[in-house]
């Protein structure tokens, strides 16, 4: 693996007496696609929430180093919008689009932290604002085209079919210019054909933007074919990590997924 852009050290998260994450370590390299798998309730989404600032980890460090400078920045405890501005953008397991805004506007929201026009700019609509606005519209449209939603640009997000809503969320996250894209169950609710297309999209995103992708996913076929490395979480502990082949043969992983045999 080349230089790590995200380095998670010993992160734990307690909810009252329950330890949802127990000293979890994880590394994502530059331009790497990493999958995080595990049974339901293993703490995968909690992990995402901890590194994106929605939760503050009880202990441990979340370090990012997008430029590869060797002096990483500690991000745990920072607000979600600051984390996004630093370059980690996410999607949600239960789709969280802005339903009464159009698809294009949803993506335009993603560019908010990369643009600067103020109240005065909005009211006077001066040249800088107009130029910025046009650039935002064009960039958002290109992103919609990339995820294959160019026919639904001016459609309200709530009227878009489910599978395409997931793609719209990815476009919205990409609009924030991230170095790491975090996808929470992107294939949930998709049929095999759509999943196959999503796989292609994830690979295309890595090629086009040169960014890393981390995904939580239950669809093993997709995880095995798309990811460079896989981490396995069970009861808040990281029980294994390695290439797809290694993970498929790891007895602990099989045990976590299928349960222990009691006969012998």
């Amino acid at each position: 693996m080349n230089n790590p852009v995200l380095n998670v050290n010993n992160v734990s998260k307690d909810f009252g007496g329950i330890r949802a994450l127990d000293e979890v370590d994880l590394v994502v390299g530059d331009k790497e696609i990493v999958a995080l798998i595990g049974p339901n309730g293993a703490g995968k989404t909690t992990f995402f929430n901890c590194i994106t600032g929605i939760y503050v980890p009880t202990s441990g460090d979340v370090l990012i180093d997008p430029e590869g400078t060797g002096s990483p920045l500690r991000v745990n405890g920072k607000k979600p919008n600051v984390v996004t501005e630093l370059g980690m953008a996410r999607t949600f397991q239960n789709i969280r689009l802005f339903p009464s805004m159009t698809a294009l506007e949803n993506v335009m929201i993603g560019t908010h932290c990369r643009t600067r026009s103020s109240v005065w700019g909005a009211v006077s609509r001066n040249r800088a604002t107009r130029r910025e606005e046009q650039a935002v519209i064009q960039k958002s449209y290109e992103l919609l085209r990339l995820v294959g939603l160019e026919d639904l640009v001016n459609e309200l997000a709530s009227n878009i079919p489910y599978g395409k809503q997931r793609r719209l969320e990815i476009a919205r996250a990409l609009a924030t210019d991230p170095f790491l894209l975090l996808l929470d169950e992107p294939a949930a609710g998709m049929n095999p054909h759509e999943t196959k297309e999503l796989e292609g999209l994830i690979l295309e995103i890595r090629e086009t933007f040169g960014i890393s992708v981390m995904l939580i996913e239950h669809d093993m076929k997709m995880v095995m074919s798309v990811s460079d490395r896989i981490y396995v979480l069970d009861y808040g502990r990281m029980i294994a990590d390695g290439t797809p082949r290694e993970i498929a043969e790891n007895p602990e992983v099989i045990k976590a997924y299928l349960g222990e045999e009691h006969d012998d």
């Binding site: 607000k79 979600p80 953008a89 949600f92 969280r96 009464s100």
Partner: peptide, 14 residues
């Protein structure tokens, strides 16, 4: 509008 529609997603989008 984003704030009105979904506060968490709005923050997560920067």
């Amino acid at each position: 509008l984003a704030l009105r529609e979904d506060e968490i997603a709005c923050q997560a989008m920067g």
